[in-house]
């Protein structure tokens, strides 16, 4: 018994010593870099640079780490990433809450921006009159043929994102709305598959209905979201709803922030600023547009946005610094 304890202590010392070599001991208010994830869509990357620039203006060090979206939640939990700054409700809440449950990830507040994540069609589908009556969902009852593909068995194809985003919400909705004899849900594997489908459908002049969100780079070429029956808490089957109610549309989504649980302790000021920080939908749209429309690099877009919008972000840092000093 004793020897076991002793050997554990010994091991602990050994491992500790290993660490002393690799990482160097530091004073309290850490000057170690804050690790910000870089994922693969424009607004997220620009926002990473905006927030990074903001931290830097407060005297912190910043490191950008490319990471897969789904994997990032585990990484924040283990402290390999410090923050998550763009957590979309509809597509990421599962991963977000799972990580929180496991421990290590804390809620760092919500952006002001309301996001829209919903099924929709590119504007030219409406212009072409492929489905008269859109954006009302009822129009879908009569136009499924224009959305058929070779493998959809004659039904219209309802192109949802990867199954990891919302599980069975879309198949249930199709059933709940009584559209299942005319429509079939297909899961795309990744966001870029959705964009490729948009392009290919446009070329062919074939109708297409895909899951999409705003703000997004697709906004520029025009995209119309379908108006489904309004969302209310508990309408979905997974939340206790029934087949009658599960046809509800998406809620106006929140856009959350998260952080590793040590962040408030290691970088109290940066954390305070980060938790105060809140972007609006137009601001996020601006960030994405700097890259997608103006063709800047992500880093430059971040700098430009910071320079152009000092009024917006300075208060978050100033109030913190003021309180601190």
């Amino acid at each position: 018994m004793i020897s076991k304890k002793f050997s554990r202590a010994l091991l602990a010392t050994a491992v500790g010593a290993l660490f002393a070599v690799s990482g160097v001991a530091n004073a309290a208010d850490s000057n170690k870099p804050i690790k910000i994830p870089i994922k693969n869509w424009s607004s997220q990357i620009v926002m990473a640079h905006v927030i990074g620039g903001m931290f830097e203006s407060m005297g912190n060090k910043v490191e950008y780490v490319p990471v897969d979206n789904q994997a990032s939640f585990e990484a924040v939990r283990t402290g390999d990433l410090t923050i998550l700054h763009e957590v979309w409700q509809s597509t990421m809440q599962n991963a977000y809450y799972n990580a929180m449950e496991k421990g290590g990830l804390i809620d760092a507040g919500t952006h002001e921006a309301a996001t829209l994540e919903e099924m929709g069609v590119p504007n030219w589908v409406i212009d072409k009159g492929l489905c008269p009556g859109l954006p009302k969902w009822e129009a879908l009852k009569d136009c499924s043929a224009a959305f058929a593909t070779p493998d959809s068995g004659g039904k219209g194809r309802w192109l949802e994102g990867p199954q990891s985003w919302h599980g069975d919400v879309m198949p249930n909705r199709v059933k709940g709305l009584g559209l299942d004899d005319k429509w079939v849900v297909k899961f795309a594997g990744a966001a870029d598959a959705l964009w490729a489908e948009l392009k290919s459908a446009e070329k062919e002049g074939r109708g297409t209905i895909i899951f999409n969100w705003s703000p997004n780079f697709t906004d520029a070429s025009g995209f119309t979201f379908i108006e489904f029956p309004p969302y209310f808490d508990g309408c979905r089957i997974a939340d206790g709803g029934s087949m009658e109610t599960t046809g509800c549309g998406s809620p106006p989504g929140w856009l959350k922030k998260g952080a590793n649980y040590k962040f408030p302790k290691t970088h109290p000021k940066a954390y305070a600023a980060f938790s105060k920080l809140s972007f609006t939908t137009p601001q996020i749209g601006q960030m994405a547009a700097l890259v997608d429309v103006d063709g800047l690099t992500h880093a430059d877009a971040g700098k430009k946005w910071l320079a152009d919008n000092e009024d917006a972000w300075k208060p978050w840092t100033v109030s913190v610094l003021g309180a601190g000093n």
């Binding site: 789904q70 994997a71 939640f73 990421m92 599962n94 991963a95 799972n98 449950e101 496991k102 990867p162 199954q163 990891s164 297909k186 899961f187 795309a188 594997g189 990744a190 870029d192 598959a193």
Partner: peptide, 21 residues
């Protein structure tokens, strides 16, 4: 890898598993 295009096979489930507890 085709799961990134959109399949209904094992690959898709692997992608899905990452967000599962």
């Amino acid at each position: 890898i085709g799961a990134f295009i959109g399949t209904t096979d094992l690959g898709q489930l692997i992608l899905k598993a990452i967000s599962d507890p």
